[in-house]
Design a protein around this nucleic acid. Sequence first.
DNA 1: TATTGTTATACTCTATAACTATA
DNA 2: TATAGTTATAGAGTATAACAATA
Lengths: 157, 157
Amino acid sequence: MEHDQLPADTLPNPLENLVGFQLRQVSMAISTDLSERLAPLSLTLISLSVLLIIESAPGVTQSEMCRRLGVKRANMTPLAFQFEARSLIERLPTDGRSQGLRLTTKGQDVATKARQIVAAHEALFLSILSEEEQTALRAALISLQSARTRTATTITS
Amino acid sequence: MEHDQLPADTLPNPLENLVGFQLRQVSMAISTDLSERLAPLSLTLISLSVLLIIESAPGVTQSEMCRRLGVKRANMTPLAFQFEARSLIERLPTDGRSQGLRLTTKGQDVATKARQIVAAHEALFLSILSEEEQTALRAALISLQSARTRTATTITS
DNA sequence: TATTGTTATACTCTATAACTATA
DNA sequence: TATAGTTATAGAGTATAACAATA
């Protein structure tokens, strides 16, 4: 049992000094944390986005949300079915071909709980940073966001 | 054709003011950009990491890299095969059960080109930020990184 | 002709389980 | 018994193509 040559914990990763790499790692860690906090509500980052959009824009259609979130229509169908099966949303025939979605009382309840979880999560990881660091991070992210040209709009925290 | 009620472009996304959400968006945009730049070399973010680790630690085994990168052994096998088929790496029987990996001349060539691409990519998106913003972003990311407890180690830029 | 919601399907990424051969 | 590499497989997440009903 001799593996003194290259134990895994001393292996370098030549990319880990890059800001882009660190950004990705931090982003993934934060997403994982939020996902775990949302699991008790049976929400993923994507279904959370959908639920909160319906909450803030009652009557929204699946297609509208797909355009907003950069996902394909075909992938919204099972999500809407799942929410309907869980009695979180109801469909309002709007148009004959499209249906406006809105939260049920139960859906509103879940949305409220979800927003509290999101707020607690955000507050916790922001508390790691000083006021100055928070401000600087926000500014840097805004600069980087306004600079990106194309790139998908995708989802969540 | 009347959809003046809720045109998709005015739909709010209640999560998009969260720093975690913005971090994710920026991170995904940067990753997408780097992926596109690497495509001509037929490298993904993951295979890039693997190639550069082999470059900087010749003789490394698949298992060691898996531990370092937080991926499962089973998923390294096809990657190693692919690199071998492309004559980018060769296997040095080290142990009877394990094989040290190292770059071929061709693999070294690809690695060098890849590092140049990564450097250009990093320089470009950092150029969006002022010196102060760059420093602040680095500091914030380091704070956030040292704070995260568990969370996968996963990959790239 | 274009759009909505749907179905079926495929591809990628990652995870588990089990096998073999070595240690 | 534990580890390295492999194989097969299954689950997410997302993509395309095509269809019926409607505009």
